[in-house]
Amino acid sequence: MPGPIQSLSRAAAILRLLAGGERRLGLSEVSTALGLAKGTAHGILRTLQQEGFVEQDPESGKYQLGAELLRLGQSYLDVHELRARALVWADDLARAAGETVYLGVLHQQGVLIVHHVFRPDDTRQVLEVGSMQPLHSTAIGKVLVAYDPVARGELGDGPYESYTLRTLTEPADVDAECSLIRERGWADSVEETWEGVASIAALIQDRRRNPVGAVCINGPVERICQDGFVKPSLVASVRSAARAISRDLGAGRF
């Protein structure tokens, strides 16, 4: 098994050293504390500074942690809080709908599944936390694209990948779908990503009414749909769960 990459281990050690101190540290202090040559320590600090993980005081020349680390930490805390607030409501939704429930957030050009509640039956199921789903063809992705300009930007100009005959691949078609989603307040996807699978999703907002994620149910078309359309009762359940999670995040009533 390959060992750790030395330069990364040293960079991590520098970040921990700066995080543990109550003051800025100079190059000599960093190199002495970690037993590194000054040239090595300076090279790592310079790289960390270029990436925003470390800042250098222009007057003293000493180093401290940078704003980029705060941003990354806040992103982690936001997802952690979202998942924590959603646990009970996601479980309730799975029981009420009798289907799989996903909680997802925007991550680069897709949706990252951060919580997965199994369908409440005895069938064999695989945990999908950490998996990615497309933005343009899933309900959970489309609802994020509809409400979050950042998600729309990540989706790009198309044409988009086709997974089935029902996948929307042209930007104009996706944008028209997003307008409909904003009008009615929820998204659906019927065999647009996987044959025989349908999903319904609704947006989750934080206390500033910013889009922070989405919740959806996923299941066979014959259980999610009736007469060619998703069942209104399931739409109501998903929207109710999204509103409850949003309220717990401070969004208030809406």
Rank of each mutant, 00 (worst) to 15 (best):
G3T: 14
I5F: 14
S7Q: 13
S7H: 13
S7M: 14
S9F: 12
A13Y: 04
I14N: 00
G21Q: 11
E22H: 15
L25H: 09
S31R: 01
S31Q: 04
A33S: 14
A33D: 07
G35P: 04
A37T: 12
K38I: 09
G39D: 12
H42N: 14
I44C: 01
L45N: 00
R46M: 09
E51R: 15
G52R: 06
Q56H: 08
D57R: 10
S60T: 15
S60G: 11
G61L: 08
G66H: 05
L69Q: 05
R71H: 11
R71L: 10
R71S: 12
R71A: 13
V79S: 13
H80Y: 15
L82I: 07
R83V: 12
R83H: 06
A84L: 10
R85S: 07
A86Q: 04
A86W: 01
D92W: 06
R95I: 12
R95G: 08
R95C: 08
A96R: 09
E99F: 02
E99C: 05
L103E: 03
G104K: 00
G104A: 11
V105L: 08
L106M: 07
H107Y: 10
H107R: 13
Q108Y: 13
G110L: 03
I113W: 01
H115N: 09
P120K: 05
D122G: 10
Q125V: 09
G130L: 07
Q133V: 05
P134Y: 00
T138C: 05
I140R: 00
K142H: 06
A146D: 04
V150N: 07
V150G: 04
A151H: 01
R152K: 15
E154C: 12
L155D: 01
L155S: 02
T164Y: 02
T167W: 03
E170P: 03
E170K: 12
D173S: 14
D175H: 13
A176H: 11
E177T: 11
C178Q: 03
C178V: 06
L180K: 12
R182K: 10
G185I: 06
G185A: 07
S199D: 04
A201R: 01
A202M: 06
Q205C: 10
R208W: 11
P211S: 09
G213I: 03
G213Q: 06
C216E: 09
I217W: 02
N218F: 06
P220L: 11
E222C: 08
E222Y: 11
R223P: 01
I224H: 00
Q226E: 14
Q226I: 08
F229S: 15
S233M: 13
A236G: 12
A241L: 03
R243L: 13
A251Q: 08
F254W: 13
